[in-house]
Nucleic acid binder design. Sequence first.
DNA 1: TTAGGGTTAG
Length: 656
Amino acid sequence: MTVAHSRRFSTAVKPIDISLLSKQLLQLGRTSNSDTFSEISRQREQLVSSLISTLDDCAGLNQIKQVHGHVIRKGLDQSCYIITKLIRTLTKLGVPMDPYPRRVIEPVQFRNPFLWTAVIRGYAIEGNILEAISMYGCMRKEWITPVSFTFSALLKACGSVRDLNLGRQFHAQTFRLRGFCCVYVGNTMIDMYVKCGSIDCARKVFDEMPERDVITWTELIAAYARVGNMKSAAELFESLPSKDMMAWTAMVTGFAQNAKPQEALEYFNRMEKSGIQADEVTVAGFISACAQLGASKYADQAVQIAQKYGYSPSDHVVIGSALIDMYSKCGNVEEAVNVFESMKYKNVFSYSSMILGFAMHGRAQEALDLFHYMVTHTAVKPNTVTFVGVLTACSHTGLVDQGRQIFASMHQMFGVEPTRDHYTCMVDLLGRAGRLQESLELIKTMSVEPHGGVWGALLGACRIHNNPDIAEIAAKHLFEWEPDIIGNYILLSNIYASAGDWDGVLSVRKLIKKKGLKKTPAASWVVDKNGQMHKFFPGNMNHPMSNKIQKTLEELVERLTVLGYKPDLSSVTYDVNDDGKRLILIRHTEKLALAFSLLTTSRDSTIMIMKNLRMCQDCHTFMRLASEVTGRVIIMRDNMRFHHFRSGSCSCGDFW
DNA sequence: TTAGGGTTAG
């Protein structure tokens, strides 16, 4: 697979037929009526040129060698034009440069700057900066003056290896010899600085450019988006005089990537209103934004948009992968599976999204089966995200041994180095399984410094297994990494509370107050069939139906008690008496949302509840038993994952 | 000759 193709790839590979042109070439010279040698030569050059052009779509090294054979046989291996074209084709097809160009350019007697530039550019795209520079040296030795393309290629090479110093040198050299000769040289310069991580330098070039085009703007907008600076991106975008589809797409995907889905949708709508059509990339950004909103209303909208533009998931891998993720996040993992199965071409994004989808719905075995299928039956190579998915699947179901094996195999079998994210999964896996000490030992063996994620996973596990001693170690580190995240302090406070250590609770509360942090109120919400959202807050009895909700809950508690339900008072971390605890429990937001759904939806429909924080143990038991007595399927999404309650049991197998 | 890309854990 070529670099160029793998990026844009969504269509099937077309076989190419070079036989016809080859035959014509063989006949040429024998049957030609041309009188002069130069005429024959010109015809040959044209024919060979079109032969090379046929390779442009897709071809392999063998076909290129075949064509090169024709070139030599027809005596065109000295033609600068033909050889330049051949090298450009090699580059376009991603065929490794070495040892081709050196051998191919050798016979060319009069090498012009375009030939050299094609070679330099080929090495640049390959990321072989040493050869690119060496070729530039050879070119200068022949006293050939570089053209703007040449500098563009050299700057590209610096960008592809992220060599800022070298990039600066070529910037200076370009400027000395050519100045801002063309917009695209400036554009390449901006791209180089962006790739080297120096957005300020890129901005400086932008500001100094005498002339800019929409590409100049889009590059910088995308660069700001990539570093999470959507404010600057938006400012720049608004001052862009003529916005094209790529520029709009940069904004849509930028907002989607920076967890601002609502803004992404707004920009998408604005784009359509201004009469610009979306393409596959824009639609994928739109879908990603809908996925983050996690509501079926948006899922329907995303599907409509994809259909409107004619992008079916079966033929468009980017759309398909985005839809898998979206359906999973909206709670409809079955539909995610349907999309996955309908896709004609699947890549690592499709597999990883599906594996993560299974993982977040507690379907660990399917996640593992898919992973094993992928590595044994397809050519798709797992990447770092794939492993996050598989390890998450293991940790959410307590598959400690499988998780360990996969973690070890990452590097050994697949050459993927474990990152802090993978350690986070492992700490979570061991921690949830109650192996807190082992978890802590694993953190000590890490080759990179553990970050907030790792310590957070350990602290979370300490909450499940009520271990204040290890919690204190984790919290100490975690508070250094994430001093302003209130949830971490609440976690520690709850651990102290469960252990009856009210002094500990008090000290954490003081810390929170000192830092001026505000507690995130718990909230649950459901969306009715009209797309209307109903949000519930703890103990909030202001809802128009609150009397009915309360009555429904009381009745439900009675029915559940027959099945053995006892309020789990340890889920309440306030220092109040037992009656107070019972009252707090029955007014947990997800229970209010459940009662509302029971009152307002038909008996055969699935109930879908969303929550912004982790569900407590009592609510989990409550939902499980409620699914039994009511005969309803309840899907509950908390801040981490989905639980599917059906006939008295949960998809997580009560391990969560 | 230059631009936009979908999946990431506690």
